[in-house]
Simulated assay, not measured.
Amino acid sequence: MSDARNEDELSDEELLDMEGPAIEVEGLRSAFGENVVHEGLTLSVKRGEVMGVVGGSGTGKSVLLNTIIGLRQPQDGVVRVFGQELQRASKRRWSAIERSWGVLFQQGALFSNLTVRENVAAPMFEHTDMDRKRVFELADLKIALVGLEPEAGVLKPAELSGGMRKRAGLARALALDPELLFLDEPTAGLDPIGAAAFDELIKNLSESLDLTVFMITHDLDTLYEITDRVAVIADKQVVATAPVGELEQSEHPWIREYFLGPRGRAARSARKKTEA
């Protein structure tokens, strides 16, 4: 009883470890029946870095993300977010963990019957006791933060372009001022210009808001442009975690094919032209 009372008296910042790694995964085993996706997977994400996660089809990138945010239970292993072991966290600590992150799913996952403004406001209504006027004022600020015009706030998801839906989903992910941002294929479905603009937005936000970013992507331009390190999932494990430049030197067959193949050469060439 006293432990629960003590926890209730602490702020989110006091409950969480904001000095150590943002994410720690140790010995993760993920399986669907007899199909083992991860076996002994280990990964650490430093606070303040942009971590890209890549791997071939079926390597369990989204499974890993869903396990880290608690949408599925692992068969074995430990997952910690800001020092808190998810499987053992109390209700109070879980609440603090959930408020510390925001998630942008691949399709945006917006509520189709709500406007953009109402979508962005939803997490604030759920997790805070702010009055309605203040919530919608903050929702408008988040909408502007991701580069949407104020007029977008009254639109519903079906009335938005693909790029606008991504930005609206990002605004909602940022609603609670998270420390940690999860992105699942953020540039999927965008044309090259739209993808480059979204990369620039993520880069600027991560720097200005001091975000830790965990990003699943297959977009090599994104990996070269905004990541600090990239984790490669293969053979049911994370086989390498390093900056892109170091991964180019890897002898692992999949890594060589991915970063040194035609798409990798095109991404490097485009980056060199941008830097010139």
Rank of each mutant, 00 (worst) to 15 (best):
S11Y: 07
D12Y: 08
L16S: 10
D17V: 02
I23Q: 02
E24N: 02
S30Q: 14
E34K: 12
E34Y: 00
L41F: 01
T42W: 00
R47H: 09
G48K: 13
G52C: 10
G55V: 03
N66F: 05
T67G: 01
I69D: 00
P74A: 04
G83N: 04
G83Y: 03
I97V: 15
W101E: 01
G102M: 05
Q107N: 15
S112T: 15
E118P: 00
N119G: 06
F125A: 13
D140S: 11
E149P: 01
P150Y: 06
E151C: 00
G153L: 01
G153C: 01
V154F: 02
L155I: 00
K156I: 02
A158N: 11
G162F: 12
R165M: 14
G169H: 09
A171W: 00
A173Q: 03
D184M: 06
D191K: 10
I193K: 13
I193R: 14
A195K: 12
A196R: 14
A197L: 10
F198R: 08
S208W: 05
D210Y: 04
M215K: 06
L220F: 05
Y224A: 14
E225T: 15
I233W: 03
A234Y: 01
A242Y: 03
E251P: 01
R256Q: 13
R256C: 02
L260I: 10
G261F: 08
P262L: 09
K273G: 04
